[in-house]
Design a protein around this nucleic acid. Structure first.
Length: 404
RNA sequence: GGCCCCUUCGUCUAGUGGUUAGGACACCAGGUUUUCAUCCUGUAAGCAGGAGUUCGAUCCUCCUAGGGGCUGCCA
């Protein structure tokens, strides 16, 4: 059985590169019907903080990366284990004291190196090998920054008589200048995407496509990723982060989501109201879907839905440049719409009647569409005018018209 | 410096010893349209360079260049 792991050190929030590493480990383990484990490497007591460990877990869960071990090992609590292995190596003469630290004898072009600090704490190279072995990790997917370290790790595996895992080193995520994404950049932290309220589905999809691809497919559900992802096919060259593509993916996911998908975003009241309507009415659902297709973010969707789920009072100020013109036409518009009975209130009929009105007055459809849209929604960006009037409903439309 | 890794459109990638080197994002130009957006169509854009192997190399080998990593009692 394939067992992978993600082993961050809790010295900061989850880095987007770390998230991708975790994702690849997760996807590959699931792909192989194996297990994906989480572990915290906190032997650097100075910089490690529990709050970061909490944050990292939350970010992983947010993306949708779930680990299989309920008890997450913290290396700082396993010192006695490393201690016994260290003593073993000392006894066998493979390690030795020097200047208060403990060095391991190198071989194969690797010089002797420290495995135990003079302050009494073990070094990462040592703990990582022991833990991976004890956790039965047999497939290690990590950043290329660890590539050279692997030589040291192999020596430890040999000295301790552990069977070696398989290593895969994935390239880093880099910035515009091909430099590894600095931790200081806002968009380097997963919390940035959480705060911006990107859909986690879009983030997972985006991350998976960074360094990997499958034929001409761009949109992958989690299940598709699990069934198609193969760590052997991950590209070897660094991937540049591209928020434009993420934004596009985010819009795709918003557009395709079912109304019920949005219930977890409770802070967006208009969206919640719309979901409520949509579950009871096919027409409301249709309206919501059309607005979803226009939104790039949840915030934008919430705004677009506002005039459809709330009372809205048209304000003359909205009309600005159209004001004089549209006010002169308003009586006719009202009359035209009033003459459409409730049972004929359809998008087609509305468009038809408005077109006639336009024709009779020798103006263009455009001349009334925009002002009407603003009267009905208070927005310049919304659906087609026929759609707006239809979805709003005859009663609401007439009442909004009578305001002026 | 030493050791190591990488190199397909601007970006993310697909791909093969013989392809018009494919897709997507972005970009640009048209079209539709009633706003914005979508949508549709199209343009432009790439195998880092040089040798070698081969009938034939984007693909295999070597070299060079460029980029990156490691070279910590950080991880």
């Amino acid at each position: 059985m394939i067992i992978t792991r993600f082993a961050p050190s809790p010295t900061g929030n989850l880095h987007i590169g770390g998230a991708r590493t975790a994702l690849f480990n997760y996807l590959y383990a699931k792909h192989c019907n194996g297990k994906f484990l989480l572990r915290f490497e906190d032997t650097d007591a100075e910089r490690s903080k529990e709050e970061y460990a909490v944050q990292i877990r939350e970010s992983l869960r947010w993306i949708g990366i779930n680990w299989d071990n309920e008890d997450i090992p913290y290396q700082s609590k396993r010192l006695h284990i490393y201690e016994s292995y260290k003593n073993h190596l000392l006894e066998k003469g493979l390690a030795y004291h020097k200047d208060g630290a403990i060095f391991l004898k190198g071989k194969d072009n690797v010089e002797d190196f420290v495995i135990w600090r003079s302050d009494g704490m073990p070094i990462f190279h040592f703990t990582v090998v022991i833990d991976d072995h004890e956790m039965n990790v047999n497939c290690i997917i990590r950043g290329v920054d660890h590539l050279t370290n692997t030589d040291k790790h192999k020596i430890i595996y040999d000295y301790l008589g552990f069977p070696k895992p398989e290593w895969f080193h994935i390239p880093l995520i880099v910035d515009e200048n091909n430099k590894p994404l600095s931790k200081r950049r806002d968009d380097a932290s997963v919390t940035f995407y959480q705060e911006k309220e990107y859909l986690p589905e879009a983030v997972m999809n985006y991350l998976a496509r960074l360094g990997w691809g499958h034929e001409n497919q761009e949109i992958f559900s989690e299940q598709e990723l699990i069934s198609m992802f193969d760590v052997h096919k991950v590209s070897k060259n660094p991937a540049k982060i591209d928020l434009k593509k993420l934004n596009w993916l985010n819009a795709q996911y918003i557009s395709k989501a079912e109304p019920s998908f949005f219930t977890k975003y409770s802070k967006y009241q208009n969206i919640q109201k719309a979901v409520d309507h949509a579950t009871r009415s096919e027409i409301c659902k249709e309206c919501m879907k059309k607005l979803q297709a226009k939104a790039f973010s949840l915030e934008e969707l919430n705004g677009l839905l506002a005039p459809f789920v709330n009372d809205f009072l048209a304000d003359e100020n909205l009309l600005n440049e159209h004001k004089v013109f549209i006010l002169s036409l308003l009586p006719q518009i009202k009359k035209t719409l009033e003459n459409i009975p409730q049972d004929k209130w359809t998008e087609h009929e509305i468009d038809e009647k408005l077109s006639q009105l336009v024709e009779n007055n020798s103006i263009t459809f455009k001349d009334i569409a925009m002002p009407l849209r603003e009267i009905m929604t208070g927005q310049k960006k919304s659906l087609g005018i026929g759609e707006i009037l239809f979805y709003l409903g005859r009663k609401t439309v007439l009442s909004r018209l009578h305001i002026l």
